[in-house]
Design a protein around this nucleic acid. Structure first.
Length: 415
RNA sequence: GGAUAGGUGGGUGAGUGGCCGAUACCACAUCCCUGCUAAGGAUGCGUACGGGUAACCGUACCGAGGGUUCAAAUCCCUCCCUAUCCA
């Protein structure tokens, strides 16, 4: 959530920064005006209410002393009418302001490169060199079918398109990857947590998926509950509405969950294979830090995800997202893209974001900052998307006959 | 699904209409006394927003939302959650 005080105080610089993310200055101007209107509406309501409270107190005294209250009552009644009018004005303004403020994305960091879309993301570095093949590498769906690892048709039979079923070594590898990743992360100080896959509206508002992106979420029928699109939602919201002791920070967590996305608007993209599924496994990293530590922890998280790929011998590159490609809640994002020889390109496998105060403000996650309470910084990143890791293993470790070598790091997890 | 009891500040837990943003205890912080495998005392200690250089003042919050009333933690309604019992 945008810091309205900051907007009020520093309109020029806030609007300059948000324009980089495609937010119009008119919208911000409206927001500023509405905020001012709400403030004055609140002030007039509170003045009336203060008078009311004072008169009520007097009323009690009158009664005790047996005085006549009819004159006072008339005054109080008249004031009451004004109060209810003032309250109504305030309520409407509050609602309008909130709806608007909740739809404004996070302010990008100053060092986020300028750009319109993913074509303008900036490469930080490449890690590991892709191997050279003496044959034409196949794409993963071909390998998956040939080895009997993944059955796309039976996934459709059970649910609908963009669902799949893993069999045998495919299923085993998925499980091995999840365990490997969780162990890898917890050795690096991320505490393992296991969380619900269904969450309520407040949680999704806290991390920024709602109210703007309801179309991409699966909602259950009879209850206000949604399937999580990422573990970021339940894990970050663990501390929703809490004031954390500062010595508890940073909190670093890792969680495995299934993730569910409608992929509205992705029609026709990645229709083959398991790059873009409605349900997929993911191991996530979430950190809650003091503001001054978030850059350091961010680097740690990027490094952890990168090291994980290296441990699996998967060539990849690190990309800083440009302003136009940055997600709604992120101030800064580094994507990790893994090399897919079958597709002959790098594909996203992890995305690490620092949301700074954005989610903390929405989810009301604070810490004792000396005497004051301040908002924490929240960060999240995948380490890694399990399905895509499996895809990368298939394509990078394939042999000419279509068989697949198991990466050494996973061997202890297979048997 | 039904019945009953509950949901109060970091924790335990008082509080059935005004003097209650809330007794007490614990925890915590500072100080005093004492002196060492201790104990005792004093003071302070919720959150958000607004106003003020500040001391401080105002408003709101006792699970959530409505209602009654001049006045609600307290009465009424709806919902959510927890515990126990029953199906």
């Amino acid at each position: 959530m945008i810091d309205l005080k900051l907007l009020q105080k520093d309109f020029q610089s806030v609007s300059d920064k948000l324009m980089r993310k495609g937010v119009s200055i008119e919208l911000l101007d409206t927001l500023k005006k509405k905020n001012e209107e709400l403030k004055s509406a609140k002030a007039s309501y509170e003045t009336l209410q203060a008078a009311q409270n004072a008169m009520s107190k007097e009323f009690g005294v009158y009664k005790k002393e047996g005085k006549d209250v009819s004159e006072l009552k008339a005054k109080v009644d008249a004031n009451k009418v004004k109060i209810s009018e003032a309250l109504e004005v305030q309520r409407i303004r509050q609602e309008e302001l909130e709806a608007l403020a909740m739809s404004i994305p996070n302010i990008p960091d100053d060092d986020v490169p300028e750009g319109k879309d993913d074509s303008q993301n900036v490469e930080i570095k490449k890690v590991l060199t892709p191997r050279t093949f003496s044959f034409t590498p196949k794409e993963h769906w071909e390998l998956a079918e040939q080895n009997g690892w993944i059955d796309f048709e039976r996934g459709v039979k059970l649910a609908t398109s963009r669902f799949s079923v893993s069999f045998g070594m495919g299923a085993k590898l998925e499980r091995a990857l999840i365990n490997f990743m969780l162990n890898f992360n917890s050795k690096r100080g991320f505490e393992e947590v296991s969380v619900p896959s269904l969450v309520n509206r407040a949680a999704l508002e806290g991390t920024g998926q709602l109210p703007k992106f309801e179309d991409d979420l699966y909602k259950v029928q009879d209850q206000e509950l949604f399937l999580i699109p990422t573990a970021e939602v339940p894990v970050t919201n663990l501390y929703q509405d809490e004031i954390l002791p500062s010595e508890k920070l940073p909190i670093k967590m890792t969680a495995y969950t299934s993730c569910f996305r409608k992929e509205a608007g992705a029609a026709g993209r990645d229709t083959r294979g398991m790059i873009r599924q409605h349900q997929f496994h993911k191991v996530e990293l979430v950190s809650i830090t003091k503001p001054e530590d978030s850059d350091k922890v961010f680097e740690e998280m990027v490094q952890t995800a990168s090291n994980l790929l290296s441990a699996l011998e998967l060539p990849h590159r690190l990309m800083t997202l440009c302003s136009g490609d940055l997600g709604f809640g992120a101030a800064k994002t580094v994507d990790l893209e893994v090399w897919l020889p079958g597709q002959n390109c790098y594909r996203e496998i992890s995305s690490v974001s620092n949301t700074r105060e954005f989610q903390a403000r929405r989810a009301k996650i604070r810490f004792k900052d000396g005497e004051k309470n301040s908002f924490v910084h929240t960060l999240n990143g995948s380490s890694l998307a399990v399905g895509r890791t499996l895809v990368a293993i298939m394509e990078n470790f394939q042999n000419e006959d279509g068989s697949i070598t198991i990466p050494k790091a996973l061997e202890p997890y297979i048997n």
